[in-house]
Amino acid sequence: MSEFLEGISCLLPPEAMLLRRLEARLAAVMEGLGFMEVRLPMVIDPAGPGSDEGTVESKIKFAAPDGSIAALRSDMTLQAARLSVRELASFARPLPIFYSGEVFRKARNKGASYLARQDMHMGAEVFSNSPSESGVMALTAAIDACKTVKSGLQLRIGDIALLDGLARTAGMDGRQLQSFKEALLSKDIYRASSALRAMGGENRAAKTILELMPANDAKVTTKLLDELAKDFSGTDLAVKAQDASGLVGKAIVLSGGKFAVAFELGLIRPLSYYSGLVFEAYAEGVGVPVLGGGQYDGLMRAIGSKESGSGFAMDLGVMLRLMEEGAV
């Protein structure tokens, strides 16, 4: 049944029942790792701290009864982050929470209007004073969630800070870096590669980005990151390369061989607030990620927190489809 806003729809039997089972199963995974459930409101204040981050343009806004502007939530990470500094400020750290629900975004334009996009998400966030702790805890939870998918899954890990560091070392200024990342975000590998090649074959940092940009398997990744750490020994880049290599190794151990792990330096998430570790998991033949997330310390600063935040969201619509195919 289509509702008044095109793109908004109901969930009918048996999908509604399957969704409830899926949520229960994933909630058990999260609770088993010590994550605590929270419920987040559907309607949000589109202004306030941190509101300039993330899915700003895609929010569906409307006039509230008092004349103020309200919006449907387009992303739950900002809500969770705000919760961590207000209602959950006194809870012990690290603070792992999870939640589920629907998010609503403006999708592609349709004439003068637009189509709405309604996605079902289950998200998990970790707030900690240690960036590595929040990142590893979120990645561990994501890996356990990945284990609920039976076959053909690949977890791809990237690192925005390492990418930024290499790009600046290669000689990109702020404008070039922004354009380069926009090309990666739109998956335009041709444009991104051309920008790097234009920097010359002797540019070691540009060559390293080119090599690390595709989704390389763990063996290739370890070799490339080790070479990078050696070439830039004693610099911040070397530390970041070693950290990334360590994280990929950890992910492989945690995966228990149940799915493939790859490193993709060109991985940029559609939300602008990611600043360090990023990851996405893909099922074979499905063009959108099963889950995706990363570290968003920039968003935490925007809401006035000194903590590190990391998290991810699972696309329950995709998981439901896999469940119907017997892959979950």
Binding site: G152, Q154, R156, K187, Y190, P214, A215, N216, D217, A260, A262, E264, Y282, A283, E284, G285, V286, G287, V288, P289
Partner: peptide
């Protein structure tokens, strides 16, 4: 003309695509 790839296949079938 552009060569394009599915987002999942880009990683899972990286070798034949490369």
């Amino acid at each position: 003309a552009r060569l394009i790839a599915n987002r999942s296949s880009y990683g899972i079938k990286a070798k034949p695509i490369a």
